[in-house]
């Protein structure tokens, strides 16, 4: 096994994704098959290979820090599942 049910439980917490018991079983078996397939990459010696994160050379882009209009509050809140006055509202935190 590449991945256990306990690891799946841990990762689901990291990902903020509730899984039912049935989901956990299926997820473990699917992820195990996929991770086993990914072992293929270990056939390659990559000791001296630089990693690529971007294929096109990109540089940090900066701009003048000028005051500009931002999204109006009512637009920003238009899709909010819950709000109060000018704020997003969430269930209790503690």
């Amino acid at each position: 096994m590449k991945i256990t049910k306990q690891e799946v439980e841990h990762v689901s917490l990291l990902a903020r994704l509730h899984l039912s018991d049935q989901d956990k079983e299926l997820m473990t078996s699917h992820l195990d098959a996929i991770l086993t397939y990914m072992d293929k990459l270990n056939e390659l010696d990559t000791k001296d290979v630089e990693p690529t994160s971007h294929v096109i050379e990109v540089e940090n882009v900066v701009r003048e820090d000028q005051v500009r209009d931002s999204i109006p509050v009512e637009d920003a809140l238009a899709n909010a599942p819950d709000k109060e006055n000018d704020f997003f509202k969430v269930p209790r935190i503690l």
């Binding site: 990459l41 390659l44 290979v49």
Partner: peptide, 8 residues
């Protein structure tokens, strides 16, 4: 590892 293979 995958980023390195991406280079290859």
């Amino acid at each position: 590892k995958a980023q390195q293979v991406r280079t290859l």
